[in-house]
Design a protein around this nucleic acid. Structure first.
Length: 160
DNA sequence: GCCAACGTTGGC
DNA sequence: GCCAACGTTGGC
C-alpha cells in the first residue's frame, strides 16, 4: 500500500454476501450492480486498487474488511440469466449493459469500523461519501480519507 | 424535457 | 415499520 494506492468502498448486505463468504472463497465476481453511477465507478477501477468491504443493512453497519481488485471490465453474467434476480431483459449480448470486477480477499478487520464511528470521526469531511441517505453501493474514497479510516481502525483496536 | 408516481436503499 | 434521499418510469 503506497500513497498512490487508489481506494473504493463497496457495500453488501451480510446475509446476502458477507466478508466471511469472501474469506472462504478467496475471490469473487462483484456482480448484480444495477445502478449506473455505481457501475461507472466500477468501470474506473484498476487492478491493484484496494476496496473497503462495508456491511450494510445490518446491526451495526460498518467497514469490516479489505479486498483488492484483480480483474476489471468483466461482463456481468447475471444480466443474461433468466433465473437471476439481476436478469435484465433489455440488455443485449452484443451490447451488455452491466459489467463488474473481480476482487480478492485481503483481510477481515479485527474490529468493525462502524458507521457511527465513521460519522463521528468524519463529521467535517465532505470527502467521505458514506452519509445518511447516500444509497450508492460503490463509491471512491480519497486516499487521505482511506488512511484516516485505517488509522481509526488501529485506534479502535488498541483501545480494546 | 418536465414531472408525478412509484420503487429501492438502508439507517434508525 | 418509518422515512429520507435518491433513481426510474412513462405520460404528455
Amino acid at each position: 500500500m503506497t500513497e498512490k494506492t487508489r481506494f473504493w468502498l463497496m457495500k453488501s448486505e451480510p446475509n446476502a454476501y458477507s466478508i466471511d463468504n469472501l474469506k472462504n472463497e478467496g475471490t469473487t465476481l462483484w456482480d448484480g450492480i444495477r445502478n449506473y453511477q455505481a457501475r461507472n465507478f466500477m468501470r474506473e477501477m484498476q487492478i491493484g486498487d484496494q476496496v473497503f468491504f462495508y456491511h450494510s443493512n445490518c446491526k451495526p453497519p460498518g467497514i469490516i474488511g479489505l479486498m483488492e481488485v484483480i480483474e476489471t471490465n468483466l461482463i456481468d453474467p447475471t444480466q443474461f440469466d433468466r433465473k437471476s434476480n439481476y436478469f435484465d431483459q433489455k440488455s443485449k449480448k452484443e451490447n451488455p449493459r452491466w459489467d463488474c470486477v473481480k476482487v480478492k480477499y485481503l483481510k477481515k478487520f479485527e474490529e468493525l469500523l462502524s458507521l457511527k464511528d465513521i460519522n463521528e470521526s468524519f463529521k467535517e469531511s465532505e470527502l467521505l461519501l458514506i452519509r445518511k441517505g447516500n444509497r450508492l453501493s460503490i463509491m471512491p474514497i480519497m486516499t487521505n480519507i482511506a488512511m484516516e479510516l485505517l488509522s481509526k481502525l488501529n485506534e479502535i483496536k488498541s483501545s480494546k
